[in-house]
Design a protein around this nucleic acid. Structure first.
Lengths: 220, 220
DNA sequence: ACAAAAGTGTTTTTTTTACACCCATGT
DNA sequence: ACATGGGTGTAAAAAAAACACTTTTGT
C-alpha cells in the first residue's frame, strides 16, 4: 500500500447506544482504562478498518462492548477537529444504536467491559469530546423522532400508546398530553391495532399496536 | 507513523456547490480526465489530509476547482461502502457549499478546471456514486431550508422576498403562493425591513430585507 | 369498593391553504 | 396609458393545544 502519508487517516466509530428502561432514556457507556482520563466514561468506540463500512464497524463495536448484535443503527455526524484528541489525529464518526431493554436482556452476551446504562440527564464525566458527541446524538434522536424504523427499535414487539408516549417524552424531554398524543399518532396512519391487549398487574389493559409494514420501509 | 495498516483509511471530501442563477438551482461539476469514466462529470473532490478538518479540506477544494474561497459550507453525509470506488477503498464525506452568483462573478479566480454550472434537474452522467451523493445533498438542502445561515448565502447582501421565494421554490421543487409565502416568512420574525427598495428596470420596486443578526447565530 | 392505569370528546387557538385585485415604477 | 412585477387581505380548512371525566382490570 504505497499511498501518500499525508492522506492517511484513522477514523474511530463512536457508538451512542440508547434504550428506554424504567421509563427513562438511557445510554450505554464504558470506562476508560488508560491515562489520560483514566476512570472517566466513554462511548464504545473502535477504529474503522479498511475492510468494513461505518455500519459494520458500529455493529461490531456494539457487539464487542455492549454484548448485543444486529441492532438498528443510524449514521449521525463526523467530528474532524485536528486536535479533538490530545495526541493522535483521529476522525470521529458518531453512530446511533437503539435497542429495547427486553431484547437486550435476552440476547446480551458477557463482555469484559463493565458498561453502565446512564440516564440521559445524569451523564458522568466523559473523556475528550465524548460528552459533546453524545449531546449531538441525543439531538439527532430528537430531530428524527418520527422515523418509524427508529421508533420500532425501542420495543421488542408490539407496544401500547402509553409506552410509545414515554419514548416521545423522554426523547423530547417534556411531558405530552395523552389525548392529543393519541390523536396525533393515530392520525399519522402508520400504526395498526393488533386487537390484543396487555395484561398488566394493575390498571386497565392497554391496546397493543404495531407499525404497518408498508410504512416502515419508506422514510427519509 | 507506525499505525496498524488495517486502520489506515483514505477519505475524500466531495463538495456539492450550489447557487441560484437565472432563477434556477445549479450545482458546479467538473469533468473527469482519466479512465475509467473519462469525460463523465464529478463533484469537485480532494483527499483529506491529516493536517486539516473536513471543513478546511472542503473550502480548499472549492477554492481549487471552483475558484472561490471562504464560502458557507455544511457537513452532509458519509459514504463508506467498501466497493463504492472500483479499485481503492476511500470513504466519501459529502459537504454542501453555497454561493450567490454575484459574489461568485466578483471573486472567482481562474482555475485549470473547466467546471460547468448544471441545472439541478439536468444532471449529466456522473462518475461512480457521485450522482447518488449529489441527490442526497439536494435532499439535505431541502430538509435544512429554514436555516437562515444557509439561506443568507444565496444572496450577496440584502434581498427581496420574491428572490427568497425563488430559492425556496427551486430547492423544494414546487411553486409557492406569493401571499402565503410572505406571511409565513415574515411571521418567523427572522427578517428585518431595511427600508430600502430595489430599482428594477421594470415593474414595481421590491422591499429589501435582511436576516436579523441575532437570529442567524443560533440555529440547530 | 377501591386503586391503578387506559381510554375518550369538545372547544379554542393557531397554522395553513386558497384565492384576486390594487400599487409603484419605467417606458 | 400600458406593461411589468410587487404588494396586500379575508375566509375556509386543517392542525394543534387545552382541558376532565369514564372505563377496565386486579385486589
Amino acid at each position: 500500500m504505497d499511498i501518500d502519508r499525508r492522506y492517511i487517516n484513522q477514523i474511530e466509530v463512536l457508538t451512542n447506544v440508547f434504550t428506554i428502561d424504567k421509563n427513562s432514556l438511557k445510554v450505554y457507556l464504558i470506562r476508560r482504562l488508560e491515562e489520560p482520563f483514566k476512570g472517566y466514561w466513554m462511548l464504545p468506540s473502535n477504529l474503522l478498518m479498511t475492510s468494513e463500512t461505518i455500519e459494520e464497524c458500529a455493529l461490531a463495536t456494539i457487539e464487542e462492548y455492549v454484548g448485543i448484535k444486529g441492532i438498528h443503527i443510524e449514521q449521525c455526524n463526523v467530528f474532524s477537529k485536528v486536535d479533538r484528541l490530545p495526541n493522535d489525529r483521529i476522525l470521529g464518526n458518531s453512530v446511533i444504536g437503539i435497542i429495547d431493554e427486553e431484547t437486550l436482556l435476552m440476547h446480551k452476551k458477557k463482555t469484559p467491559y463493565e458498561g453502565v446504562w446512564f440516564n440521559i440527564d445524569e451523564i458522568p464525566k466523559m473523556i475528550f469530546d465524548h460528552a459533546n458527541i453524545l449531546k449531538d446524538a441525543a439531538n439527532h434522536l430528537k430531530s428524527h423522532l418520527n422515523n418509524p424504523l427508529m421508533l420500532k427499535m425501542f420495543f421488542p414487539s408490539d407496544f401500547t400508546l402509553p409506552e410509545l408516549q414515554i419514548v416521545y417524552e423522554q426523547i423530547l424531554g417534556k411531558k405530552l398530553d395523552r389525548r392529543n398524543f393519541r390523536k396525533r399518532i393515530l392520525n399519522l396512519g402508520i400504526l395498526e391495532d393488533t386487537n390484543y391487549k396487555t395484561n398488566n398487574k394493575m390498571g386497565r389493559p392497554a391496546k397493543l399496536y404495531r407499525f404497518k409494514e408498508s410504512e416502515i420501509e419508506y422514510y427519509e
